[in-house]
Design a protein around this nucleic acid. Structure first.
Lengths: 150, 150
DNA sequence: TGTAATCATTACAACAGCATAACTAAATGT
DNA sequence: ACATTTAGTTATGCTGTTGTAATGATTACA
């Protein structure tokens, strides 16, 4: 699988692999260590990061607890706990599923959407040192990242 | 601070800010959601990620518990707990501080270094989709990331 | 020399994260 | 109609994280 002329028909030379490794390691340092904002968001919204994660998963639109559980890779029981907490805080509510009376949909309240927006603002605001780069560098990064996202 | 002609003497136009934001958001998706290897490393080494974090902090060279606590932003008591655990596993040992007899240095054993190396290998291995990019894209990413780390 | 500050530890205590098993209600398939 | 499956909840417990207070040993300073 790693030999020349493999499935992709493309050989990645050593220097490129090293560059990729260096870049990946650097990205980890940047995002995990230097600009990790989990604590910051958690403090700003007064809730643990796992709740914020849930909030952001629900934000795009109502979904069943099952779907939420799958997207967060957690058990149904723990999902119930998380949603209970969001409901208690007034950020989410359970509404009946339109066709399946076993299921419930979770959706954000207006407050919940506001909280999700605040979280998104904090989490997606690029750090100073990124904005300080030249325009070409930022655009190059943007281009490569969008390729990676497929 | 945000007005034209600010401290840096450089104005960042809107499109560039948007590109930076998009790139930053994309990076977060990539590293936090899509290729998050915390669980993987934790399972591979049979210990929680916080232990692995400690292992990696100690790896560069012996340091006092206080220094370790600062670099991990944890309390001294919890640092003791973590080091105790690493010692119990045979990955670290406490040695007397050369000049301050109150303090102790923590350093990795040979096994500890091997474990740290395994962790580093898993965490810094670039994901498939990064290696699948064109050489120029990888090099561009590497270049921008190294600027950011600078 | 004695007092205060520092390093590490111990002993608790509280809470977050996450899993398992048992249960109810509703849907599905025979 | 009955058995099986599925959605969600409840009860329970274990592990890991993190804080506070108290203790012992050593160092630094007045």
């Amino acid at each position: 699988m790693e030999r020349p002329g493999d499935d992709t028909g493309r050989q990645v030379d050593d220097a490129t692999v090293r560059a990729a490794t260096r870049a990946w390691q650097g990205l980890n340092t940047l995002l995990m260590d230097r600009h990790n904002r989990r604590k910051e968001v958690a403090e700003a919204l007064g809730m643990s990061f796992s709740r914020i994660r849930a909030l952001r998963r629900i934000a795009p639109g109502p979904l069943t607890l099952r779907e939420l559980a799958q997207r967060m890779s957690t058990d149904p029981p723990y999902t119930t706990v998380i949603v209970d907490d969001l409901v208690r805080r007034g950020f989410a509510e359970r509404v009946p599923h339109p066709v399946d009376r076993r299921a419930k949909l979770v959706r954000l309240t207006a407050e919940g959407e506001a909280a999700a927006a605040r979280a998104a603002a904090i989490l997606s605001a690029p750090p100073e040192d990124l904005l300080a780069l030249d325009r070409e560098d930022i655009e190059a990064l943007d281009r490569v990242v969008s390729k990676l996202l497929g």
